[in-house]
Amino acid sequence: MKHTKQHARNIRIKVLEMIHQARASHIGGCFSIADILAVLYTEILKFNPKKPEWPDRDRLILSKGHAAAALYATLSEFDFFSAKKLETFCKKNSALTGHCNYKVPGVEVSTGSLGHGLSLACGMALAAKAQRRKYRVFVILSDGEMDEGSTMEAALFAPHHKLDNLVTIIDYNKIQSFGLVKTVLNLEPLADKWRAFNWGVQSINGHNHAEIFSALSTLPLKKDRPSVVIANTIKGKGVSYMENSLAWHYRSPDDPLFQQALKELEQS
C-alpha cells in the first residue's frame, strides 16, 4: 500500500496545480476522492494505458463529473498521457474540460450533469453480462447526486437485474453544492437505504487505503447483487484550510494559498 499513498499525494498535487493555474473550482471534491482513485488504479482496476479501449478493461465512470481534475490527474499519474497535458486543463482548445470529457484517453464517458453515471454504468454492466465478459463497472457518485431521481431509478434497476459486476462508490463528504447534506436534503440512514434496495453495502473511511482496498477486493459484497461502498470522506482532504469547507467547492487558491497547500501536501 506504500505506492498508493505516493500516488494519492501526487494526484492531489497535480490537481492543486491544475486548479490553481486554471483558476478553476471544485478542488474540495477532487481531494475527497484522491485516495479512492489512487487505490482503484494501483490495486483494483484492470486497464492498459497504451490501449485505453481494451475491451476487457474495467470501466470507471466518474459520475460526479465536476471532479474531472482528479480523474485527469489520475490518468496522467497512471501513464494514459503525459503530465504536460494537465497544464492545458480548462485552457483554450484543450480536451481537458472542467467536467469529464470522453475525448480524453481513459475517460469512459462525459459527465458533469449529476445523476447520469449510474444509469450508464447499468448499461455497461448489462453489456458485460450479455457478452460474457469479465470486466467490472465502477462508478463514483457524489453525495449530492443521491438527490437526483435518476440515481434512484438506476439504484432500483441494478439489483433487479443482478448486476454483481457493478460497483458504486459514494463520496460521502457530507457537503453538497450549497450546504451540508444533512441540512439541504438529509440522506440518512444512507446505508439502510441501499440495503433496502437490495445492494451489498459497506461503509468505510474513504481516506484509509487499507479499508478502501479491503472493500474493493472482496467484490461483490453480496452474492448476485451490485455493491455499494459508502466512503466517508472529508471535502478538501489534505489541505488544512480546505477541509470540510463549502467555500472550496468554488474557490481557486491564490498564490500564497497555493504555496501553503503545496507545502502541506508535499509534507504529507
Binding site: E108, V109, G115, H116, L118, S119, L120, A121, C122, G123, M124, A125, L126, A127, A128, A130, Q131, G149, S150, E153, A154, L156, F157, H161
Partner: peptide, 23 residues
Amino acid sequence: YINVGVAEQNMIGIAAGLSLSGY
C-alpha cells in the same frame, strides 16, 4: 429486450451504456 420500468431517464442512460459497449 428489457422493460426497465417507468424510468425514462434511466432507460436512456442504460441504452447509452449498451451502445458504448457495441450494441
